[in-house]
Design a protein around this nucleic acid. Structure first.
Lengths: 111, 111
DNA sequence: CCGTATCCTCTCGGATACTG
DNA sequence: CAGTATCCGAGAGGATACGG
């Protein structure tokens, strides 16, 4: 097994990339949310809740807001009664799919 | 942007893959440790400490032990004076490199 | 040199109730 | 339906001191 192609640009540079990335898509729920939106497309708020039985109201809205402010998720609100809000991935959101695929593959290979 | 190739096998199956993967390589330090060992090869304990200025004694030894018990890291102890311990990646450890590369690339592209 | 043991802080995430 | 507010507990992570 040869060494990786990854090279460090300067002192600590790559480490910072990893930490920056983790700060945006880390935690218990963000990758799962991104996966649902990436694989299945647009979802309403309560659809996402049903798809993630373990998540709480607070976590879902909080993580969606964080993902939106980081430009990974787009929030479309329709002023109807009852209210309707649809979430989808942005271009930047889709760009994390390779990470998701790599993790999914690794999870499959090691279980 | 078309949908991802990821497909869900059954109800919640892929989500579990992600969560299992996260449980092993998640957290603040594990990916950084794997990166150093994967890119630079074998390292002694104190070398790793110097490469990760922020990490504490407790975290480094704790995370190394977890990575070892999960079969990602190999620990080789030499009974000399002073003691010497070398850490390296196992085959399974190297198998997480695609995830690391994907995250590194994403971090670079988005900064 | 390479750790472990304690103790402590602080953030993440959960439960529950309330609002437009 | 789609959230926000408040409170709370557990556990991750840090500082420091001690041991083999």
């Amino acid at each position: 097994m040869s060494k990786s192609k990854i090279q460090v640009d300067e002192n600590g540079k790559l480490k910072c990339c990893l930490e920056n990335t983790l700060s945006i898509i880390g935690g218990k729920w963000k990758l799962v949310i991104l996966w649902h939106l990436g694989v299945e497309g647009i979802h309403r708020y309560n659809e996402l809740r049903r798809l993630m039985p373990g998540i709480t109201h607070k976590m879902l809205s909080q993580k969606l807001k964080e993902l939106e402010s980081n430009g990974l998720v787009h929030r479309e609100q329709y002023n109807e009664v009852p209210p309707r809000v649809e979430y989808s991935l942005t271009e930047k959101g889709y760009s994390v799919m390779p990470i998701l695929e790599a993790m999914h593959k690794w999870g499959n290979d090691n279980w």
